[in-house]
């Protein structure tokens, strides 16, 4: 049975799509058959981050409406052969998704895939609710600042009350905290909330901490999930995150300010 993981946050621009792409790719790299679904109908982005925007013919809404079948709409990744993408529609809006339609597609995908990653849109409206409703696990993407933490808290409330598992009285969705754009230097200066602060407020298990990194923007612009940039700090942090998501015990990195050597200090880091 496939595991359905929603990547959500409430707030926009915190790194949901970047994280969905990285986590989905990371799981697929381990040999699991994985599909990433873009639930952000009308604001299609995942295809850009994954670098497959020119191969989008049919989309999620087409499949729900029966205008195409899943095989036609799924885009196979060119780098990893166990990875697939189901793109969002750019011309429709979020009301195009119906609970019955989404359930039907997820059931169909569950027969073939090991992991289904749902890339949620921002907000708490129907699109975001649809993305989280069928989830087994949730990765709550949060930036270390107060408004993002507040919105994550709100989404955690939704996960525990508005999901299928909550409505049917099943065991709750397993919640993970993914802290992105973390900058230890600014934490030391008191300009950013620390891992401890965020963990204290949200009170869920920490899955990963992704440092603020130039590599993320570079990766997005080139259409390569940042996890494939194994040299970068962000790429390594996502690799650790995927390992923890799969149940491995990996120590946290990139939490403290790196001590710069003499040469780095002279020539810049």
């Amino acid at each position: 049975m496939a595991k359905i993981i929603v990547v959500t946050s409430g707030k926009g621009g915190v790194g949901k799509t970047t994280s969905s792409a990285a986590i989905g790719t990371g799981i697929a790299m381990r040999g699991f058959k994985t599909v990433i679904i873009d639930f952000d109908i009308g604001l299609r982005n995942l295809d850009l981050i994954m670098g497959c925007e020119r191969r989008v013919v049919y989309d999620f809404v087409n499949v729900i409406n029966g205008e195409a079948n899943l095989k036609q709409a799924l885009i196979k990744d060119k780098r990893i052969d166990t990875l697939f993408i189901l793109p969002a529609s750019q011309t429709r809006d979020k009301d195009a998704l119906s609970k019955e339609g989404v359930e039907r597609i997820l059931n169909e995908l569950a027969e073939e895939f090991d992991y289904i990653i749902c890339d949620s849109p921002a907000g708490i409206e129907s699109g975001a609710m649809m993305a989280l409703y069928f989830a087994d696990e949730a990765v709550v993407v949060t930036n270390p600042e107060v408004s993002s933490v507040r919105d994550s808290d709100r989404i955690l409330g939704m996960l525990s009350s508005k999901s299928r598992r909550a409505e049917q009285g099943l065991p709750g969705i397993k919640e993970h905290l993914l802290l992105t754009r973390y900058n230890p230097e600014r934490v030391v200066k008191g300009e950013m909330l620390s891992v401890e602060d965020v963990g204290d407020i949200l009170a869920i298990k920490l899955l990963g901490v992704i440092p603020e990194s130039q590599a993320v923007l570079n990766a997005s612009n080139s259409g390569t999930p940042v996890i494939l940039d194994e040299e970068s700090d962000a790429g390594q942090a996502y690799l650790d995150t995927v390992a923890r998501l799969l149940g491995e015990d990996v120590p946290f990195r990139f939490l403290n300010v790196e001590k710069k050597g003499l040469l780095k200090r002279i020539f810049g880091g």
Binding site: R150, D151, D153, R154, L156, G157, S161, A203
Partner: peptide, 25 residues
């Protein structure tokens, strides 16, 4: 935990929360 945006009302009763009441809850 009571998350932001959630509301709990104990009508005619005492209320015990074994958790944290988040900002906005």
């Amino acid at each position: 935990n009571i998350r932001s945006g959630q509301q709990i009302y104990a009508k005619g009763a005492d209320l015990v929360i074994r958790g944290t009441v988040g900002a906005g809850a």
